[in-house]
Amino acid sequence: MWRWLHPYAKPEATYRLVEKLLPWFAALTFISLVVGVVWGLAFAPADYQQGDSYRIIFLHVPAAIFSMGAYAGMAIMGGIALIWQIKTAEWSIPAIAPVGAALTVVALLTGAIWGKPMWGTWWIWDARLTSELILLFLYIGVMALYFAFDDARTGAKAAAILSLVGVINLPIIHYSVEWWNTLHQGATITKFERPSIATSMLIPLLICLAGFLFLTISLVMMRLKNEILRHELGRPWAQQELEKN
């Protein structure tokens, strides 16, 4: 496995791999989001309690799950960067953080808009909402720290450490609905028993989840390509790459 992985420590090799995979992930993103969103908006049945307002779930849940998933990915990259000093892992931190922050913003916005008709309020300082807001601040902190040093590698190390420390927030977000009293409903699909959601709603939700996974990967890949080129700007292969279009 190491023999297979080692070439990707070379930035150009990683760039070529990402370049090859990106169109596939972009196509998967497009197909699954169109199918999932159209199915969820137009064909899934209305909820017997929440009526049609529940359709926000098809954005809210995937965005929230991958706001945490992206953070976990960023922390793993931070760990790899610290332990093995692999530059492409360092550069993936500023590639992932803005995407994760955007997903967090989407989760918070859709949650607020869903909360208004169902709870009667846009925002409440309860555990789930507050811990998700802290996730947004962690993303912003990681980005700020990454660019706060004159020496880029020092900044990358600091950002990697912060991203690892911030992992403590992930179980807090996930279990916040069990540990504290909250307006937010409990887990419906991320639990070990049978999901407590009708199959006719679960299928489009799973398609939207896949769509957001592919979307996250595609955006991160686009940004990682930029990060690699930014650091390799003086090299002939990067110059040729940038002249192509």
Partner: peptide
């Protein structure tokens, strides 16, 4: 959207 149109469409638009 059964009276929730503003909320549903606003959330999809902002996202």
């Amino acid at each position: 959207m059964g009276g929730y149109g503003l909320y549903v469409w606003l959330s999809f638009f902002l996202s």
